[in-house]
């Protein structure tokens, strides 16, 4: 018995070793660039010094938690935390279903050439950097010189403060986010739709199901595992914060809602040379992200889905 398992494994390795060999490079990447740097997490608990190795730095006060206490007693950090959660939650609520709907609509397009064209067009914004998008937004949405507001004025309406009032700014932020990433995110859903067995559609057609029925009973259930996995992964990002999107779109009038954790870290930590503080905040973010990821996964498994592992 023992021997047969061993020889079976040997045989397996002999046949597939090349696949494992190909895995070595990515593994090396993760070990070198993701695991080894984790040793530097200790900077969060130490007084940073540029000339010392992290192992030799002195421990920070309050049993090493000085910088965590410093962050949490900083009002700006708490606002940044609130804004991060708010913007990410809205992104999830509105931005997450958008590509699913778009993918279904694209899938239903009968005219194939038009479908391909549309797909390409909706991907495009994904390749624009946020700096460019914020430039476009200013050209279009500024209160007096923005094209949209000029048009509104000509039609007799007042300007809408898309960028200079916090509540409007949040809407602009979310909508631009959807515009930028929605098309790109449809790719994975379109791939999943393509994997649904066409016989199911044929059978339902025979049963007299119309389009909406087909979408409801075949396409959506077919997409369910994909949706769950992507949802779990996005929940893992609930406290992660992008930097360039809020930073590029922000201005001094909306900092109450636009200052997110990454901007706090940039201004107070990096530019203020407080590296221990930045690391402490980064570690806090990561820990919360991991908790969310595990919780979401456990919940998914409990409700009968596969989860991500």
């Amino acid at each position: 018995m023992e021997i047969s398992v061993k020889s079976k494994s040997l045989l397996y390795m002999k046949r597939y070793w090349i696949l494992y060999a190909m895995l070595l490079l990515p593994l090396a990447f993760f070990i070198i660039f993701r695991y080894i740097p984790m040793g530097y997490i200790q900077i969060a608990f130490k007084n940073y010094s540029i000339v010392k190795s992290p192992w030799a730095m002195d421990w920070a006060g309050n049993y090493g938690f000085e910088y965590f206490i410093k962050a949490f007693s900083n009002r700006d950090f708490l606002y940044a935390l609130r804004n991060t959660i708010m913007l990410n939650f809205l992104d999830l609520l509105i931005g997450f279903p958008a590509p699913i709907m778009l993918a279904i609509i694209l899938n239903e397009l009968a005219f194939k050439r038009f479908k391909r064209f549309t797909q390409t067009v909706v991907y495009m914004p994904h390749f624009l950097s946020w700096v460019i998008i914020s430039g476009l937004a200013l050209q279009l949405l500024a209160p007096t010189t923005g094209l949209v507001n000029i048009m509104l004025n000509k039609m007799g309406f007042a300007s809408i403060p898309f960028l200079n009032e916090p509540s409007y700014w949040v809407v602009t932020y979310i909508v631009l986010g959807i515009w930028q990433s929605c098309g790109w995110n449809t790719i994975i859903y379109l791939a999943a739709i393509a994997g649904i067995n066409p016989e199911l559609y044929e059978a339902s057609a025979v049963d007299g199901a119309n389009r909406l029925r087909k979408i409801w009973h075949i396409t959506l259930p077919g997409l369910r595992p994909t949706i769950m996995i992507l949802l779990i992964l996005s929940l893992g990002h609930i406290l992660g914060s992008e930097f360039d999107r809020p930073y590029a779109l922000s201005n001094k009038l909306v900092t109450d809602v636009s200052n997110v954790i990454s901007i706090f870290v940039y201004n107070n930590g990096i530019r203020g040379l407080q590296f221990s503080l930045s690391t402490a905040v980064g570690l806090f973010q990561s820990v919360v992200c991991v908790i969310f990821l595990f919780t979401a996964n456990a919940l998914a498994k409990k409700s009968g889905e596969r989860g991500i592992w």
């Binding site: 993701r34 740097p37 530097y40 997490i41 900077i43 940073y48 992964l233 893992g236 990002h237 406290l239 992660g240 914060s241 930097f243 990454s262 870290v265 940039y266 930590g269 990096i270 590296f275 930045s278 690391t279 905040v281 980064g282 973010q285 990561s286 992200c289």
Partner: peptide, 8 residues
């Protein structure tokens, strides 16, 4: 790695 960031 997607959600960690800003390590000096």
């Amino acid at each position: 790695s997607g959600c960690t960031s800003d390590k000096p």
